[in-house]
Design a binder for these strands. Structure first.
Ligand SMILES: [Zn+2]
Ligand SMILES: [Zn+2]
Ligand SMILES: [Zn+2]
Ligand SMILES: [Zn+2]
Lengths: 135, 135
DNA sequence: TCGGATCGCGTAACATTATTACACATTTAT
DNA sequence: ATAAATGTGTAATAATGTTACGCGATCCGA
């Protein structure tokens, strides 16, 4: 999305990004707040402010259908195209991928309609391979 | 999505669906509640329960990125494929469309991954043709 | 180097969105 | 008629997100 490098992170941004990276899955803002109380966090706004920046830098994605946030899977990479997410409703696994063909199809629609696109949300709900197999 | 006909609506479901249809755009659950106070609504749960059913029947869609609900644009039609929404951030206009090619591309990914898809959210943010032109 | 502008941070209060729990009524199927 | 399933009303509470205010550090032009 934003392909340029992000500024160096502030203390709070590092803490929040660390929580999300360590979690290996999505966390709500309030879950992050609880994780960071020992590090001095006291109020939701501290989390939300850091998340705003991390999302802006492309290091974190917001999952709209979960009201939660997840570290970008493109580790070490400073940016990528619009991401999509497959969310397993049984085990909570979230898989990020870049559905170029779908994006292109949507962009074609926006061109036809004269819609000026700024942000795209694609979230799939269902069961992952592992969970779908079980039953 | 669900292609079969929906049951006849209950009193509350009719009231909520009426509010949404009349609004010509998305409403939050609490906005609906306020609209329906004169009709006897008192508590959020009355709205959420009706919305759950209306969404299940495919008459109403939930806009995840807005925490709001909108009547399906396919008036009189009992069902259609997965819908996508373009949301203008200037004027609030919401356009529903059915992006078959994008859906197919996403389905291809789920087939490859063994992901069993149950629900798809696609929401575009930006500015509509009218608002994009203005400035 | 002074001053303002910007940015990040801390805290409190508040607003918005959604759910749980319980009781009762209505409809539907047996 | 009875039992089950569905719908309803109400209160309380939980979860998520924002506004307002003040303070300190940093950046940058005058
Ligand atoms: Zn990413
Ligand atoms: Zn799973
Ligand atoms: Zn629709
Ligand atoms: Zn517009």
């Amino acid at each position: 999305m934003t392909a340029e490098a992000h500024p160096t992170l502030t203390k709070n941004q590092k803490l929040v990004f660390g929580s999300l990276s360590g979690a290996g899955g999505p966390l709500t803002a309030y879950a992050i707040l609880d994780l960071l109380r020992d590090s001095g966090f006291r109020a939701p706004l501290q989390v939300y402010r850091a998340l705003d920046k991390l999302v802006e830098y492309g290091l974190v994605h917001r999952l709209e259908s979960l009201n939660a946030f997840v570290a970008c899977s493109h580790k070490g990479c400073s940016g990528h195209g619009t991401a999509a997410f497959a969310i397993c409703e049984k085990c909570g696994l979230v898989s990020e991928f870049t559905p170029d063909k779908a994006i292109e199809a949507l962009r074609a629609w926006t061109r036809d309609e004269g819609f000026h696109l700024s942000r795209t949300t694609i979230e799939l709900r269902g069961t992952c391979r592992t969970c779908a197999g079980v039953s």
